[in-house]
Simulated scan of single mutants.
Amino acid sequence: MDNTKVIKEEKTVAFRERKRILFFGLPFTFTVYTASNVVVTVDTGFFNREENDCYMYKIQDVTLKRSLFERMFGLGTIICYTGDVTNPELVLEHVKHAKEIKEYLLEESEQARLKRRTLNMQNIGAESVEAEEL
């Protein structure tokens, strides 16, 4: 027998929220957002279902946008800027408790990066240095 240990992170769901229609903030859509300590999942569609996942450690920055109508009905749109190939901008549109979800995503993404010991590198000014060398 192989004595290799596989450590699997336990996934605890922190938020499960439906995309809501902007008018009165009613949850009459077929899009469900789920945020756990490991992954953010977006399930869309009724007949043709699509599930899109983004690992928490890939989330680099989070923005909260709230239009006038969203504020009137207690909603918000969260944009996660990720290092994910399929979705560089993961949008959680018209969700309740948007401020709390945004704060959770920021904190958990930082914790996930620390656990995996990953490093975010930003390419600041590299283009200008390469252009000067040519």
Score class of each variant (00 low, 15 high):
Pro27Ala: 15
Phe28Cys: 14
Phe28Thr: 11
Thr29Asn: 11
Thr31Glu: 14
Thr31Lys: 14
Val32Asn: 07
Tyr33Gln: 11
Ala35Asp: 02
Asn37His: 06
Val38Glu: 14
Val40Phe: 15
Val40Thr: 09
Thr41Ile: 12
Thr41Asp: 01
Thr41Asn: 01
Thr44Gly: 10
Phe46Val: 05
Phe47Arg: 13
Phe47Gln: 03
Asn48Lys: 14
Arg49Ala: 10
Glu51Gly: 01
Glu51Asn: 08
Glu51Phe: 06
Glu51Leu: 09
Glu51Ile: 10
Asp53Met: 09
Cys54Phe: 03
Cys54Lys: 08
Tyr55Ile: 00
Met56Asp: 05
Tyr57Ser: 09
Tyr57Ile: 02
Lys58His: 12
Lys58Leu: 14
Ile59Gln: 07
Gln60Pro: 01
Gln60Tyr: 08
Asp61Tyr: 11
Asp61Ser: 15
Asp61Glu: 15
Val62Asn: 07
Leu64Gly: 09
Leu64Asp: 07
Leu64Ala: 07
Leu64Val: 03
Arg66Met: 10
Arg66Ala: 10
Arg66Asn: 05
Ser67Phe: 00
Ser67Asp: 05
Leu68Phe: 15
Phe69Trp: 13
Arg71Glu: 02
Met72Ser: 08
Gly74Trp: 00
Gly74Leu: 05
Leu75Ile: 00
Gly76Gln: 03
Thr77Asp: 07
Ile78Gln: 02
Ile78Arg: 00
Ile78Asn: 06
Ile79Asn: 06
Tyr81Ala: 13
Tyr81Trp: 04
Tyr81Ile: 07
Gly83Thr: 10
Asp84Arg: 08
Asp84Glu: 13
Asp84Thr: 01
